[in-house]
Design a protein around this nucleic acid. Structure first.
Lengths: 238, 238
DNA sequence: TTGCTTATGGAACGCCGGTCCATATGGATG
DNA sequence: CATCCATATGGACCGGCGTTCCATAAGCAA
């Protein structure tokens, strides 16, 4: 019965509760304590109310966290107003904005899903699609390519960002990488020929650059298939 | 204290418990009931023991699920023995094998993480890296490219596969897609210009093909950057 | 004022992850 | 064969969680 509550705060009570303020408080708590630390009891105390009141505006914890993640995704659009750029750099900028937004709220990364159902996830796919449509790719490929890029953005961001909370906040990133590198070095080169000689790159790599490198690979592929016949000069001219 | 229990079942008791059999039973339960349905109590009953005994072999539920997911990832290697192929088709086959393995155990998709720490996740990155090294790409790019591809495989698989359990098993995939398509059609074309004219592709798309299409895009990019100067004839000859 | 819908908050329920501990098992030692 | 101890077991128990329920309040229409 309490579907789709949280209309605009107009006309309500004074210290009115609403889905919007609840989700906002949830984001703060999630940033501070992570997904495990977010509790309806704690959230209720934070908002000076009881758990029952919260359930009037939000149907359960899964929905709450999904809404919170979608709000975080919304930050990316605020940080990246749709500039008038060419398609390739527009896609790059959008992707990086999403990565950075999720990077600031690691718990959210694993909750932005596709095919999208929430408002900002829908907006993301739509913007990617609009930019893809500008590349001159044949129309029948737009959906597939747009979806692939969206999947890359959210899926790979989640892979890169999510692993951290597994380990204590007491362990710094450098320590973690150094420890992992050492473990790779101790592996049997016969079983793991590649890893055992690649540990230095692991130590030096930056997550954000890694994300961008893969994205560029994807966009290069797009470029290559969009213009299969190599043009005379600059192959970057879409 | 109970780190790294579960030595080979040799020499133990008769109905010996071990990490291996526990993880195996967990996989079955996860397949049947999902992550929420897996319970130490239920698992204990299934194995005719108590919860305390389980904790002797596995330190907590997170570790148990991670181990279960890694076991599922191992299925992919069994299904895809390292054939002697050229790098491109080898990467394709490996990626698809992983996707298929995760597709059969949807709960596992969101638990294979990178940078890898468990045995089969390490193997995956190593195999990808080995194949990448065969492409003739300059050595200093091996790590970045291999990581990007691994991220794509696990991250995008998770994106494609994970969303399903959110909805009841009572709703078929076709129903879900049709419903989503209808919702996209009802959006305001001013806000969502791309989505509102792309609903037919949504209805028709196949997840597996979608995964492969994005992968091919990535591999095309690899191909393009590996051989920046387009060779005379076939551009697929690595 | 009356009556109905919307909204609130806190008590209570059932279940879960995890710990504790009394007990058993079986190989090593003599 | 008797003893001992690290290994292993299983069930009771604890604290805390998501969720439900319900008695009540607050706004609004007649």
């Amino acid at each position: 019965m309490q579907r789709t509550r949280g209309r605009a705060p107009s006309g309500g009570r004074a210290g009115a509760l609403s889905q919007e303020v609840i989700v906002g408080a949830a984001v703060s708590l999630l940033d501070e304590l992570g997904e495990r630390g977010l509790t309806f009891r704690l959230l209720a105390k934070e908002l000076n109310t009881g758990t029952g009141a919260l359930y009037w505006h939000v149907s359960n914890k899964d929905e709450l966290v999904d809404l919170a993640a979608d709000q975080v995704l919304g930050h990316a659009f605020a940080a990246h107003p749709s500039l008038e750029e060419d398609a390739a750099s527009g896609l790059r900028a959008l992707a990086v904005a999403v990565f950075d937004a999720l990077d600031r709220h690691p718990w959210a990364a694993s909750h932005v899903s596709a095919p999208p159902t929430l408002a900002n996830a829908l907006r993301l796919l739509d913007r990617v699609g609009t930019l893809v449509a500008r590349t001159g790719l044949p129309a029948e490929r737009h959906f597939t390519v747009a979806t692939a890029i969206s999947y890359y953005i959210t899926g790979v961001s989640a892979q890169i960002i999510a692993p951290r909370p597994t380990h204590d906040a007491t362990v710094s990133r450098e320590d973690f990488l150094a420890r992992t590198a050492r473990r790779w070095e101790e592996l049997d080169p016969a079983d793991y020929p590649f890893l055992t000689r690649t540990t230095q790159h692991l130590r030096d790599h930056a997550d954000r650059d890694q994300f961008i490198a893969g994205l560029d690979l994807l966009l290069d592929g797009l470029n290559a298939t969009a213009a299969p016949r190599p043009p005379a000069g600059d192959s970057n001219a879409w």
